[in-house]
Design a protein around this nucleic acid. Structure first.
Lengths: 215, 215
DNA sequence: GGGAACTCTTGACAATCGTCCAGATATATT
DNA sequence: AATATATCTGGACGATTGTCAAGAGTTCCC
């Protein structure tokens, strides 16, 4: 339902034959560039305080250009959300496929998880913000649901592989498993952003205790 | 740290002895009334689109009165959040204390949970919205953290009692347990608000499968 | 090089925002 | 009744918002 992140402007339908012929990807490349500026702004100040002018300031263009590449603010943010999706769903696949033992997988996963929270904290608070917005704004729901499903699959790949390496089977459903990871991550993200230097280590410790019990 | 929901205005310090003597609770009662209007608005349109004028419209007063009872918009919303806390942390205590068997507790809890999602969906999306705002806004963090802790305790009371009735002990920590419940509730709340008539039943089924395995 | 289409800037617009304030109304004491 | 205080109204303000349109600049085909 949301296959395409960016769609070409219907420009030049039966248009005249002279003048500048637009390179096919130039338009989409610019849209991506602006979507990235939008994500940066959203991650920094949150959905409630994100304005088009501030997004434009994060890019190298003026605020007017946004309505050239996007029909309105919703269109821009929706496209940004779809673009965001591709950036976070394969994060742990490398570890899952190369780890040769339970310990190796667990260590690698927790390392990566800690690194994620340390380096991309604001990108993740953006995600929680947008997911909350989907509870109010119909336009976001399909995309948010799809991203949530992708993340659930990602967690499942890690946990089922972990379980497999121990000759076991996960003791919880994929959705419940994702719920635990998601809930814990959000809780410790708030702690981390609040300045708690122990937050990351505590999250890792909690998961290190939890995982062997459920998979 | 956030003991007091509402604090009396420092009015009449060394003031003259004549004129209207304010009833002690009249002021606080009005603050609560306005806080309720604020919660109603927040639940309806979300934090991002909540304005003082719309809050005033939900009450029986004009928009100017808000700055008489609250110093600014943040003060109003913070007070509303603190007031909100008291409304949702004892929801399942009745069931926990009266249930005499595991099945009775499970049925009662799931019934209440379904009723909550059906009747108070918008109050809960407000909660998820505010918790996401706390990731950006420092002013909300202490209150949000405190509410989260209260909810965690509430879940723990239910689950540990359930476990006790089976002569067992919960297999997960209080925080992980809360994370599962919270994550699942949020997921099915989105489904429910999206018009999925099966959402509530599916959540109940998932929890009915999950609970006996972990407690 | 001329011209058409694409790209981007700039300024304007109506609407809405939080905040403030002068004054009207209500209330309770003397 | 007179008066002082508490409460509330409604309009005004400056700032910011999303949106749009007119035009300048750019690019490329003829």
């Amino acid at each position: 339902m949301t296959e395409q992140v960016l769609e070409r402007k219907p420009c030049g339908e039966g248009a005249p034959k002279r003048g500048a012929r637009p390179p096919i990807d130039k338009f989409n490349a610019r849209r991506i560039e602006l979507a990235e500026a939008a994500l940066e702004t959203l991650a920094e100040v949150g959905y409630a305080r994100t304005s088009l002018r501030e997004i434009a300031q994060k890019s190298e263009f003026s605020h007017g250009v946004l309505h050239y590449y996007f029909s309105d603010k919703f269109d821009l943010i929706c496209c940004s959300v779809r673009y965001y999706k591709g950036k976070c769903v394969t994060r742990y696949d490398q570890i899952t496929s190369t780890a040769r033992s339970r310990d190796e997988l667990l260590d690698g996963f927790l390392d990566k998880l800690g690194e994620t929270m340390r380096l991309e904290a604001s990108m993740h608070r953006l995600w929680y913000d947008l997911r909350a917005q989907a509870l109010f704004e119909t336009a976001f729901r399909d995309d948010v649901t799809a991203i949530d499903k992708s993340l659930e699959d990602m967690v499942w790949r890690v946990v089922s592989r972990f379980s497999e390496l121990g000759g076991k089977t996960p003791a919880m459903s994929p959705e419940s498993l994702y719920a635990v990871f998601d809930g814990l991550f959000q809780k410790y993200l708030l702690r981390h952003l609040s300045g708690d230097a122990q937050a990351i280590a505590d999250l890792q410790a909690e998961l290190r205790r939890l995982l062997p019990m459920i998979a």
